[in-house]
Computed example of a mutant assay.
Amino acid sequence: MIFAAILAGGIGSRMGGTDTPKQFLTLGNKPVIIHTIEKFVINEDIDKTIVLTPKNFINHTNSLIEQYIGKNDDIIVIEGGQTRNDTLMNSIKYIEENFGIDDDSIILTHDSVRPFVTHRIIKDNIEAARRYGACDTVIPATDTIVESVNGTTIESIPVRDYYYQGQTPQSFNIKKLFNLINSLTEAEASILTDACKIFTLKDEDVYLVNGEVTNIKITYPYDLKLANTILEDKND
């Protein structure tokens, strides 16, 4: 089976000026998270879409889904975790307990606040995860990359041609991901905030899927303004 895990566990503290997590803010005429969920629900290859939210937003999320999408047994809302990796593990445990995991099980993990992911990106993620076991959606870095360890002076300026900006989805063979997570030491687990980094830490290849510059992550107030502009252009 193929699963999508929509990671909506954050509270959006960087958005500022609102107590509402950023994934529930309005984009166009509906919440950001609904735009995102819809992209995965309409994909015929995805069997179940699992949405992971803070516990106190589970009922609210279910209400929004029923309001904007309608009742759909293929959308499941469960509690996220304290960290991104905890949230990811919650999705895997749910899949294991309710559907089972076999050698062909695939999971696409996606930020709830990236509402402009395209069908092509999703399709390419599914194909790459099936073929290679792990993939990350990226776009080439356009700005010069500057490294500073102390935050005051430049340590190095690496060759930009070799650097990419990570987006999501990040997609994996579930059994492979589960085994790697369980192999982490406590020290390794404490510093990991990215699922692909788990693979690289264990010397496992992660293949690149081409993203889109419009596949933005809504983090700050300006991002929401930009997202509304992108949406208007898409609707013209």
Rank of each mutant, 00 (worst) to 15 (best):
I46E: 08
L208M: 08
D124E: 15
E188I: 07
T53K: 04
L201C: 05
G17H: 03
F199S: 07
I11L: 09
G28K: 10
L27E: 08
L201N: 10
P158L: 06
D203L: 02
C196K: 13
V117D: 08
S13P: 02
I50P: 00
M1V: 06
I121G: 04
I126H: 11
T137V: 09
S183M: 13
I101M: 14
T152F: 10
V213D: 09
N85K: 06
I174D: 01
A4K: 06
I154W: 03
I46D: 11
D136Y: 05
T185F: 11
L201S: 10
E212H: 12
S63E: 14
I33N: 12
D104M: 05
V32N: 10
F178T: 00
V117F: 10
I121C: 05
E232L: 02
L88R: 01
A5E: 10
L231M: 04
S91C: 13
K123I: 00
L231P: 05
I58W: 03
V149F: 11
I92S: 07
S171D: 06
Y163K: 06
D143K: 14
P31Y: 05
Q82S: 11
T109G: 07
I6V: 15
K225G: 04
D19A: 04
Q170E: 09
T137R: 03
Y164P: 04
N215I: 08
I154M: 06
D223P: 10
T109N: 10
E155N: 13
D45T: 01
L224N: 06
I122T: 09
V159R: 15
D143H: 12
G80Y: 01
T53I: 01
I122N: 06
N228R: 05
I69D: 11
I75C: 04
N182T: 00
K217E: 13
S13L: 01
G17S: 02
S112G: 15
Y220V: 12
E97L: 00
V77N: 07
A141Y: 01
E127A: 14
M1C: 12
G81I: 00
I58R: 13
